[in-house]
Design a protein around this nucleic acid. Structure first.
Length: 508
RNA sequence: GGGCCUGUAGCUCAAUUGGUUAGAGCAGAGCGCUCAUAACGCUUUGGUUGGGGGUUCAAGUCCCUCCGGGCCUACCA
């Protein structure tokens, strides 16, 4: 049984404002963290910004800003966005912080001393956009990089430092063989195996300062800074205070959550760097797909289908976005998103099912029972069935789940709320209450509905914490932080309702 | 060019991994209810599973091919 856990988001390149992809990965990590904490696992979550590299430097220059001033501004935007999205992180790293830079440099010196780094001369065509050298076939008809057709490429002849990866390839393959859970879901494991099927090229770990100044200076050659990935990945360790004494407990349980675009850096480069350091390899790399615009095409400004997370938060609230991201990402594939789809899910799933159930049962109770939680009488078969449905859906949150489990488990909660709506309509307490002989029965139906909903809401805290707590406050059912398990009959009979307001007010 | 994946009702997704008449939600249509956020419930319309070919008693599922999407990668960066 896992007792500690360490979840990481990638650290985000700050050459532009935070976008949906950043929001997605980070919110998924937050959900996994809340889930583990609720199940008694001591979990830490790290996120942050990668502030080195050529593109960051150029973004600052383009705005005519001092580099540090620019980085301060950008990283504060990321931090603000994650705060707005209710992400409860333990570490927000900035790779420009002195401790991180010192440890990166120390690690590099060790690599040099151990003979793991070599020096080579290289001539080639360099694309600043990619921060990579290109071959002739990479270029378009105009001799420009296909990914950055608006930038000129440069011919460069220079010395650089390299970390040969090939000597570690077989060890990594052996590790994967012995740990088939290393990358999840399986589709991405086979992709990783393919990346390792051919000999690996040496990883260039340096960039000359004449081209890039924003980075960690190489300890053995001050004319160079460190290539961003060779520096950035180390944040996963330096966040924990590595190489201090107490990092190991969390490090041995580390899970990296990434988008499929950076599988190679995390599945190949990073484990091999760790091997070079003599460190434990990550326990798991959990990979998710990307969000596409509706129709399944990539989001782009020219198509006008870009979903801006902050605009969504402003229009629908943070929980609407958190819910959509959690519920509608398919396990192994890319998924679609648009303002219309979010609006549909918000109104139709959160509002009409969950929010409306709370409204109809709570307002009815408040009106007829003097603002008090009704009293439960003898339960019928139908009552028990309704309770069982809620309990079962909530049970999915009373165990540690994987990244790919999130959509189905979230869906189960909404479905359970939907079934409670069914139950409520079938029992029709508004009819029962008219006859004195069945008035008590109305109270039981209301209690069962509200108490079952409370169980669902407690599970919902892992997905949409603010809304769930708001709803639980209406039910006068405060929950304690920490270890949780779903239990019935925790709603206090005769307790006083909070003010009943619409949980997810309809947005049109 | 190579690798991995993908295309199923108007829209977003399922289909126990080859096995009855391909399911669900939303949208549309009809009815009901009035506790509720014009919300809820019941009924219902809608599919040659991207096109073509093949294997099989049987194909959404396997093979080939064409078309459309996505990510990675590409003479030592």
């Amino acid at each position: 049984m896992m007792t500690k856990s360490y979840i990481t988001t990638p650290i985000y390149y700050v050459n532009a404002a935070p976008h949906l992809g950043h929001a997605h990965t980070t919110v998924m990590c937050d959900i996994m963290t809340r889930n583990r904490k609720a199940n008694g696992v001591d979990t830490r979550l790290s996120t942050g910004c990668d502030e080195h590299g050529q593109k960051n430097q150029e973004s600052a220059e383009k705005l005519g800003m001092d580099v540090m001033e620019y980085l301060d501004l950008r990283s504060s935007e990321f931090k603000k966005a994650f705060d707005l999205l209710d992400v409860d992180y333990d570490y927000f790293v900035r790779t420009t912080r002195p401790f991180h830079k010192e440890q990166v440099a120390a690690m590099e010196q060790k690599f040099m001393d151990a003979g793991l780094i070599i020096e080579k001369q290289y001539t080639g065509i360099y694309c600043k956009g990619c921060e990579q050298f290109k071959t002739e076939s990479d270029l378009n008809d105009e001799g420009r990089c296909v990914d950055h057709p608006n930038m000129d490429v440069e011919e460069i002849d220079e010395k650089n430092y390299f970390f040969p990866l090939e000597p570690f390839r077989q060890r990594l393959l052996d590790h994967i063989e012995a740990n088939p859970d290393f990358v999840q879901p399986p589709k991405f494991l086979s992709e990783l195996k393919n990346m390792l099927a051919e000999p690996l090229e040496d990883l260039c770990i340096s960039r000359p300062k004449s081209r890039v100044s924003l980075g960690v200076t190489l300890p053995f050659d001050e004319d160079f800074v460190t290539y961003v990935w060779f520096d950035a990945l180390i944040n996963y360790l330096t966040n924990l205070g590595w190489p201090g004494n107490d990092y190991q407990d969390y490090w041995s349980e580390v899970e990296h959550v990434i988008g499929k675009d950076i599988l190679k850096t995390h599945g190949v480069y990073w484990p091999i760097i760790l091997m070079g350091m003599g460190e434990t390899l990550p326990k798991r790399i959990s990979v998710h797909g990307h969000w596409l615009g509706s129709g399944g095409v990539k989001m782009s400004k020219s198509l006008g289908n870009v979903v801006d997370p902050l605009e969504i938060v402003e229009k629908f609230g943070a929980d609407a976005l958190r819910y959509y991201l959690a519920r509608h990402m398919r396990a192994e594939n890319d998924s679609q998103i648009s303002v219309e789809l979010i609006q549909g899910a918000y109104n139709g799933e959160l509002g009409n099912k969950v929010g409306n159930l709370l409204s109809r049962a709570a307002k009815f109770s408040v009106d007829r029972f003097d603002g008090k939680i009704p009293t439960k009488g003898t339960l019928t078969e139908e009552d028990e069935a309704a309770r069982a449905i809620a309990l079962k859906a909530a049970q999915g949150f009373a165990e540690v789940f994987a990244l790919t489990d999130i959509p189905a488990r979230t869906e189960a909660l909404v479905q359970a709320a939907d079934e409670l709506n069914n139950y409520f309509t079938a029992q029709a307490p508004w009819k029962l209450i008219k006859d004195p002989e069945t008035a008590d029965r109305a109270q039981t139906v209301l209690y069962v509905t509200l108490d079952s909903l409370r169980v669902l809401l407690e599970a919902f805290r892992q997905i949409i914490p603010t809304s769930a707590d708001k709803a639980l406050a209406i039910l006068a059912a405060p929950v304690e932080e920490g270890v949780w398990s779903p239990e019935l009959d925790r709603l206090e009979e005769g307790g006083t309702f909070g003010e009943v307001v619409a949980l997810f007010p309809r947005v049109t």
